[in-house]
């Protein structure tokens, strides 16, 4: 049983499901599309405000793009469990670690590709569309870091979602945990506008520090990304444990 063969299979599975192709393409469309729209419409500091961050402005669409990445990861992994389809997959690739690794690699790789496109368009297009004088270049502080960070962020949340789907063996199960975790909890646990506290360590807050030119709070851009990565490692490890341990 070879890893390239398992990868090939997983890639065929992704490209042969409309829901997967659709959610994967929604990642750059939503991220870049909405970012450009917001930069074009509102790309200037509000009068009197002092914390205008042109980089963060460029990634407004990530709020929606991340959902597509979460959905993609959940369907790619959780879809296997529909009607016990996992049995067919595991009969073909009985080495569960190999199966799981290939699945995660294809999810991560696909999201990395579309994520980089989304990220570059969001940044370059967004900055170009901002009101004259406010846009910055890729060589400016925090810019390149954010471009890479946005793509990494999308990869990590899609894998986090895939891990949850493997643990819960269901697409809806994964989404009903992850959507609140990303969209509701940050508002409940802490005031989003202020740094500090437990909310900083939630996956979305931590992972998005990298999109700020000067991140406030306990976590820096890369330590924030490391916190998100830790969440992802935890979820995928638990998913792997569940897949290996349980009867299919």
């Amino acid at each position: 049983m070879s890893f390239p063969a398992a990868l090939h299979t997983e890639w065929i599975k992704v490209r042969s499901l409309r829901s997967l192709v659709g959610s994967l393409l929604t990642v750059p469309v939503a991220t870049a599309g909405l970012s450009l729209l917001v930069c074009a419409a509102l790309g200037r500091p509000e009068p009197g405000s002092t914390d205008f961050d042109p980089v963060l402005f460029s990634y407004y669409g990530l709020n929606f793009g991340q959902l597509a990445a979460i959905i993609f990861g959940a369907i790619a992994m959780g879809g296997e469990y529909k009607n016990e389809g996992i049995r067919i997959s595991l009969a073909a690739v009985p080495n569960r670690t190999l199966f799981y690794g290939a699945k995660l690699a294809v999810i991560g790789g696909s999201v990395l590709a579309v994520g980089l496109v989304a990220s570059l368009i969001s940044f370059l297009g967004g900055q170009a569309l901002m009101d004259r004088g406010f846009g910055i270049g890729i060589a400016d502080p925090g810019a390149l870091r954010a471009v890479v960070g946005c793509a990494l962020y999308l990869v990590l949340v899609s894998l986090l979602s895939a891990g949850a789907a493997a643990l819960l063996r269901s697409v809806t199960g994964a989404l009903s945990v992850l959507v609140p975790l990303f969209l509701v909890l940050p508002f409940v646990v802490g005031d989003v506008s202020q740094g500090g506290g437990a909310a900083d360590f939630l996956p979305d807050r931590a992972g998005r520090q990298i999109l700020l030119q000067a991140p406030p709070g306990t976590l820096g851009p890369w330590s924030g990304m490391a916190v998100l990565a830790a969440w992802t490692v935890l979820a995928t490890a638990v998913g792997w444990w569940a897949l290996r341990r349980r009867d299919a």
Partner: peptide, 22 residues
């Protein structure tokens, strides 16, 4: 094992192509 297990949204050909590749 179970004829209903194949993912309904795939075509018959892609279902088999994915299995063959592995």
């Amino acid at each position: 094992l179970d004829a209903q297990a194949a993912h309904g949204s795939r075509t018959a050909r892609s279902h088999l192509l994915a299995l063959a590749a592995s």
